[in-house]
Nucleic acid binder design. Structure first.
Lengths: 348, 348
DNA sequence: TTGTAGGCGTTATCAA
DNA sequence: TTGATAACGCCTACAA
């Protein structure tokens, strides 16, 4: 088709005006004054020629690139995949493109990717760090690039963030188990330095404490899924859950129930229990977190806590876009709410 | 830190040379002539100032952006997630960034995204179309943007592609089931107009025919997962598999075995059978395709066919990068090989 | 209301 | 071997 790039000058020629007039038609700030006729001529020429402004020339001229960077640990984790979906939807709706970067849970790679984002001159970034003490983010803010966190926050800093009520979710679930008379509740948690993991864990701890139930040491286990990397996130968490559960099987007495940081770990746990001849939930109920799609399809279906990740992504994007330009903006913290979902891995 | 952007001129000043000299140091084609001393001075200045060339200015000057576009149906599908991982790895290794676009199985959105890629002036694109007759790709080639297909091919066209030996995988699996004396083998396939789905299906068909076994109508079912969209790919395929299996349950006689286009559908099938009181694999063995991580964790673990998706992504990227610039290039078609994996959803 | 001119950061060309 | 200059496509003062 009309191949060779058409520039603003071509449009100007065709419309019989100057390039700046064309530019004005394109960028008319609010109500600007110009003859209706000129405007019409120009618009026609634009349409006929199929003209689109050159992104790169625009970016060079003024400050905007209309690109936002997304820095997350790993898209192959379904949790982040749908977070990203939410981000992309909202961004493209608002005329922004996105660059997705996977840190692969590696702080060094995280820093490299931040460099990339800077080179790409992104207008802003949505950031889910792989730890809670990333200094990478400061390179962004040094360059005056707006940053909004999603899901996980940094220790001892106050960046704008959209996250979920993780503490409350865990607290509620744990309380219900206690109400059902289960007391020796085990907890399998993810890496220590991730705020969302920590909050989920603290919800459990506080619920136990508030109900006057002490936690037997040895019932709390930790998987460190951030060390190993794999093309498929689930590979490492499944195995991790499996291995931890095998340790529980070695205990003199099995726990009354097992809670996991997330659904994938929980599925690994269930498999180990099954292979160890333990009935779920008959002997040991198991619960996860996140409500991944497969949660309702494994046997037994996972009791879990739903997290509206896509919505989280949308909200983070809106928050970021609202802040762009403005030196400061409105709400610095928003929470999506979680939702407890009972299924047959855990008797109500 | 050193905040305000440092330009090539700053470097030139600091080194006491002209901007063009700095540029030459940066882009010295092969062995070029310049005093070692000047070169050294310039390199020092570059390092001290932490100078990096401005991507946008470069893109405007010559033809390259060092960006490749990736157009796939849906990253929340673990299959594509790891494909993308492979692409990103290889691309960043070669100094390219990527723009990931999800068509969400929507041909219209696919066309929009192609426009985006053109505006972004990507140097090339990796494309997994949502159907087999996408005309969107021609807009890319009209703009002289190189395109390599991944996983799925278009009908009646010969674009360079990296895919997998899907036909052979299915053929082998089906043959083995037949060898085991299973004859009434059902097949649940995905949408008609996707080449990888079709090839998997044809592998089954040919194996049946070559073994002289005719296929009972009614045993072949189709799920159309491309209609519904969801933030999580798995939601729709799981449900689809579930619903189809319910139809089999209504049959006068159950099939001897059920094959599915992919693992996710297979998990949906298994759940329906289980709820219908049918033992897997005792009464009806079930097999999938793709070897997703969860395949070995569901109960019973899925017999499936491994597809090295990440490798496929790497190869597609290499193929694309090799073609950039060159009007034509070497191998237009490469296949990764698949690998049959027996697990306990299917007796050997 | 519209046009002219200059410059954003690079690099290719040509002259020195 | 190095430097000056123009040009990529666009936008914004400023002038008309």
């Amino acid at each position: 088709m009309n191949n060779k790039k058409v520039t603003i000058e071509d449009v100007a020629d065709k419309a019989g005006v100057s390039p700046s007039t064309v530019s004005r038609v394109l960028n008319r700030k609010a109500g600007r004054h110009m003859k209706e006729e000129t405007k019409k001529k120009v618009e026609e020429a634009i349409k006929e020629l199929g003209y689109t402004p050159d992104k790169y020339a625009q970016a060079m001229r003024h400050k905007e690139t209309k690109v936002i960077g997304v820095l997350i640990p790993d898209v192959s984790n379904p949790f982040f995949a749908s977070l990203v979906w939410g981000i992309e939807d909202k961004a493209s709706e608002k005329g922004y493109s996105t660059i997705i970067c996977n840190s692969q849970n590696n702080p060094n790679r995280e820093e490299e990717l931040v460099e990339t984002l800077i080179k790409e001159k992104v207008d802003g970034a949505i950031f889910t760090p792989c730890g809670d003490d990333s200094r990478a983010v400061y390179e962004l803010t040094d360059e005056e690039i707006d940053v909004v966190f999603a899901d996980r926050k940094l220790k001892e800093t106050e960046f704008p963030i959209v996250t979920a009520s993780y503490f409350e979710g865990s607290y509620e679930l744990t309380s219900q188990l206690l109400d059902n008379g289960l007391e020796r509740i085990a907890y399998v948690r993810g890496p220590v330095n991730i705020s969302s993991v920590e909050e989920r864990f603290q919800g459990y701890r506080h619920a136990m404490r508030d109900n006057g139930v002490s936690i037997e040491p040895g019932l709390i286990q930790k998987v460190d899924t951030s060390r190993k990397i794999d093309y498929q996130y689930e590979n490492v968490s499944l195995d991790a859950g499996f291995e931890i559960a095998e340790e529980y099987l070695g205990l003199a007495e099995l726990p009354d129930a097992i809670l996991a940081s997330n659904d994938v770990i929980a599925v690994g746990i269930i498999k180990a229990l099954r292979e160890g001849g333990v009935k779920v939930p008959g002997e040991v109920p198991v619960c996860g977190y996140d409500n991944i799609p497969l949660a309702s399809y494994v046997d037994p279906s996972l009791t879990t806590i739903d997290v509206p990740t896509a919505k989280m992504g949308e909200m983070a994007t809106e928050m970021l876009l609202n802040r762009l330009g403005k030196s400061r903006a409105d709400k610095p913290v928003e929470n999506v709410s979680t939702d407890l979902i009972y299924r047959d891995s855990c008797p109500k």
